[in-house]
């Protein structure tokens, strides 16, 4: 197989203030499918075209934000190798193993904290529950999709201080490719990095900020611009808190809209982008062009978009 190592972002675990309102948001408005609840009260969901058991985990507590993000790797051998490599690199802290089945239908997970303060997990096994269609002579989408109905959980954007060592960890240890970066000032300090483990413009992105472990957004993939506009309709129709959009990014070229879940965690649904092969040159943006880089149509910085995190 040509795509090896870390295969994809497999799950994002979010803290919510009100589980009932959150379930309504993620299922009725966004159109994710609930696949399980556990005895801790956590709710597991997936997007319709994901075969794996879950990609979103919600936990009710007294704060918002991200608990952790999980990455599927290609095999148990790879999982063990990465665990060893991460430990030897010294680039992550709080290393631990989470037992199999702590998440339903999920194998053991290797957990670590990046230098930006984000908890990440690697795992090799998660049950395949399918996408509602047979794998032999399927149709193109199943009946009964609701709301925005993105096809998959796609990526997260995260805020933290030590971007350098986090980039090192993802690129040198986990084999990610840098696709785009933002540099600032005469020192050309990298203030934002977009990285992929696959062929996407990004599977995870970070922005350098004086904080640890902050969550900017979790993003979900739609098919096209029309679906982004339909998502905008659904946001108004359901009185969802809108952040910004529909609009277009310069960075990643995504067609996008941002909004908040009922606990203030930012969501994105988007379409478009490009294929990034590992030998594709890195695209670099400078901070004086940051407005166009972030919102290609507006071409100006949006304070709320850049400053509001959980």
């Amino acid at each position: 197989m040509a795509l090896t190592g870390v295969l994809r972002p497999g799950h994002v675990a979010l803290r919510v203030l009100d589980m009932e309102a959150s379930i309504h948001h993620y299922t009725h408005v966004m159109g994710l499918l609930e696949t399980a609840r556990d005895d801790q009260g956590r709710v597991f969901l997936k997007a319709w075209d994901e075969h794996d058991h879950h990609s979103v985990v919600l936990r009710e507590t007294d704060s918002a934000g991200m608990d952790y993000m999980g990455w599927r790797v290609d095999s148990n051998a790879t999982l063990e190798k990465f665990a060893k490599d991460i430990e030897e690199s010294g680039l992550a802290s709080e290393l631990s193993w989470v037992a199999a089945d702590e998440h339903p239908q999920t194998g053991r997970r290797f957990r670590f904290t990046t230098s930006t303060g984000h908890v990440m997990e690697l795992y090799a096994e998660k049950g395949k529950v399918g996408n509602g269609m047979p794998t032999l002579n399927p149709d193109i989408y199943p009946d009964g999709l609701k709301g925005m109905s993105p096809s998959r959980f796609d990526h997260c954007l995260l805020y933290g201080d030590d971007l350098d060592n986090t980039m090192k960890l993802f690129i040198e240890i986990l084999g990610f490719t840098l696709t785009e970066q933002v540099i600032a000032g005469p020192d050309k300090l990298v203030i934002s990095a977009f990285m992929t483990c696959s062929n996407k413009p990004h599977d995870v992105a970070f922005i350098r900020q004086p904080c640890k472990g902050k969550f900017h957004h979790a993003s979900f993939l739609l098919d096209n611009w029309g679906e982004v506009l339909k998502a905008a309709d659904l946001i108004s129709r359901n009185r969802v808190s809108l952040d910004i959009g529909p609009t277009r990014h310069g960075i990643t070229r995504g067609e996008t809209i941002y909004f908040f879940d009922p606990s203030g965690n930012r969501n994105e649904v988007f379409s478009g982008g490009y294929i990034s092969y590992p030998d594709r040159p890195v695209l670099t943006w400078t901070d004086d062009e940051l407005g166009r880089a972030i919102f290609y149509h507006d071409r100006k910085l949006n304070e709320a978009f850049l400053s509001v995190v959980t």
Binding site: L17, S63, A64, G65, S241, D243, F260, D261, P262, S263, G264, N265, R266, A304, S307, V308, V309, T310
Partner: peptide, 12 residues
């Protein structure tokens, strides 16, 4: 009043 997430999560 600065407007953020409108969900009690971000604090602005």
């Amino acid at each position: 009043i600065p407007v953020g997430c409108r969900g009690g999560g971000c604090g602005v």
